[in-house]
């Protein structure tokens, strides 16, 4: 299978000197859906911001066949659909339509194509009826789905989601899980929701203190209770 994301020996330190990533390597293939787990401060969010070049450290990141560099940044940002944890940060336009159209518009697509993509993206998160709604009228669950649509409209090759199930009530969480299962696209999902991991992802990557400490089949990782406890995680 072709690799969509490949990260090799990534290091990154913040301005204050805190080393958030200390040599991270992994790869994600077409159709892969992987969970990214680990305690707070493990470097998960930092890693995600590296994948579309918002932060850049030392090491090598390849998306599809493109190496992440200054010149390839615009293309790579369309290929990597990054959805932030707080949908109020992700949805910055007054209406749902404008928000979902933001990505395609800034990719320079013609307007008919933008409209087509907005409709398709809303369709795939089952939010078509909300097209002309005001963002602040949506519930948290609805906002999360629209947030996913805002990157789907850019036709990304991989989705990167930060804590998609946080703050959702059981029903909204269920809707979201079904949605993620049905989306035919590679994804890397950072989460603390271990039941979500167990249910949805065959593969799990565990991070702690800026390193990947495990990368393998979810059922093997979740079976090792001692290992989970050592990294601040819990068996679901």
């Amino acid at each position: 299978m072709t690799e969509i994301v490949s990260v090799r020996d990534l290091h990154f330190a913040y301005h204050d000197g805190h080393a958030a990533l200390r040599g991270v390597s992994f790869a994600l293939c077409e159709g892969d859906k992987a969970a990214l787990v680990g305690p707070n401060g493990a470097g998960k969010s930092t890693l995600m911001l590296q994948l579309n070049g918002i932060l850049s450290g030392r090491g090598e990141i390849t998306i599809g066949t493109l190496r992440l560099e200054r010149e390839t940044l615009p293309v790579i940002r369309a290929m990597v659909g990054l959805v932030f944890q707080n949908p109020d940060d992700q949805l910055f336009s007054p209406t749902v339509f404008e928000d979902v159209a933001f990505g395609p518009l800034h990719m320079g697509l013609p307007e008919e194509e933008v409209v087509r993509r907005v409709d398709a993206a809303l369709e795939s998160v089952r939010m078509t009826a909300y097209r002309d709604r005001l963002s602040h009228h949506l519930s948290v669950g609805e906002k999360k789905r629209v947030a996913i649509a805002t990157v789907l409209s850019m036709s990304p090759s991989v989705l990167i989601l930060d804590e998609p199930s946080a703050g959702l009530d059981p029903r909204a969480r269920r809707t979201l899980i079904n949605l993620l299962r049905d989306l035919p696209i590679a994804m890397l999902v950072s989460t603390h929701d271990m039941r979500l991991v167990e249910e949805l992802f065959a593969r799990t990557i565990v991070m702690d203190e800026g390193l990947i400490v495990a990368d393998g089949a979810t059922k093997d990782i979740l079976a090792d209770e001692e290992f989970l406890n050592a990294h601040g995680l819990e068996k679901p």
Binding site: N52, A78, F92, E98, L105
Partner: peptide, 15 residues
């Protein structure tokens, strides 16, 4: 950051 992730380069485009 969310704007950058979706292709914002300093120029805002509207329909």
């Amino acid at each position: 950051n969310a704007m950058l992730s979706r292709g914002y380069t300093g120029e805002l485009r509207i329909m």
